[in-house]
């Protein structure tokens, strides 16, 4: 079986900082891959590179067998690659439902003319997207607050909403940048449940975090990043036992 995502020798430098260096990893179809590393390790940069927000200096990104290196973010979304942001990124002044509807661009939007003329196809697409969103809201646990303004929600709900906007695009690969950062234990568990659930529905997931416990209970495999380079890759058990990882990362944290 070929990998869904294949990242090969990826590198990105910002001035004097080598943010990502010779990064290699694969995401298999149906896999939850964790990327862990201390602050400044290059995790967000890796997501930015894969999602097309910034271009790599060198290296290659292959998705579903096709070279997508440097491809525009919106085109990558069309192919099924979505990402969330580390900082809460939502439409503050809109309702929760409207937020998620805006995430469903690729499925709900049928081009300028068909929406302008209100063709049967455009209306059907919008209706189907609306139904799918009600379902999504319900299993994200956001139905109760669907009509509330996003900014009125507690932080934990806002974080889940950010996830909901990404999932509304019906991804094949979802890259989540610290989805549990700042959440309570229960909220983090809820996020983990959401990740497992989309994973059961055949979505591959990259979860970025710096909390080893969260990552290791959720992910099938883990990539440990250190100063932009890959330090170790393996199952949670292997990685947490790796002496280099213990020294470079866990050793300093515990």
């Amino acid at each position: 079986m070929t990998a869904l995502l294949d990242v090969s020798r990826l590198a990105k430098r910002f001035g004097a900082v080598q943010a990502v260096e010779r990064l290699d990893f694969q995401v298999e179809p149906g896999e939850i891959l964790g990327i862990i590393g201390p602050n400044g390790a290059g995790k967000t940069t890796a997501i930015n590179l894969i999602s097309g927000v910034i271009r790599p200096d060198s290296g290659r990104i292959t998705f579903a067998g096709q070279d997508v290196t440097g491809m525009r973010p919106d085109l990558l979304v069309r192919r099924g690659v979505v990402r969330t942001f580390q900082a809460t990124t939502i439409y503050q002044e809109r309702t929760v439902r409207e937020n998620v509807r805006r995430g469903a661009f690729t499925t709900a939007y049928r081009g300028f003319w068909s929406t302008f003329l209100g063709t049967a196809g455009a209306r059907a697409a919008a209706r189907r997207a609306g139904e799918a969103i009600d379902e999504l809201l319900s299993w994200l646990g956001l139905s109760e607050v669907a009509d509330a303004e996003a900014r009125s929600l507690p932080y934990g709900f806002q974080k889940v909403l950010g996830l909901g906007i990404a999932l509304a695009a019906r991804p094949r690969l979802a890259m989540l940048d610290e989805p549990a950062a700042g959440l309570s234990h229960d909220e983090a568990n809820h996020v983990a449940e959401v990740v497992r659930r989309i994973n059961r529905e055949d979505v591959s997931v990259i979860v970025v975090d710096h909390n080893m416990r969260f990552i290791s209970t959720l992910c099938h495999r883990i990539v440990v990043l250190h100063h932009g380079a890959e330090l170790a890759t393996g199952t949670p058990q292997d990685v947490t036992r790796d002496p280099r990882v213990i020294e470079a990362y866990l050793g300093t944290q515990h």
């Binding site: 927000v53 919106d74 979304v77 979505v82 942001f85 805006r102």
Partner: peptide, 9 residues
Amino acid sequence: RLAQSSGVP
């Protein structure tokens, strides 16, 4: 940025 990451060109 958010709109773009939902696929809006």
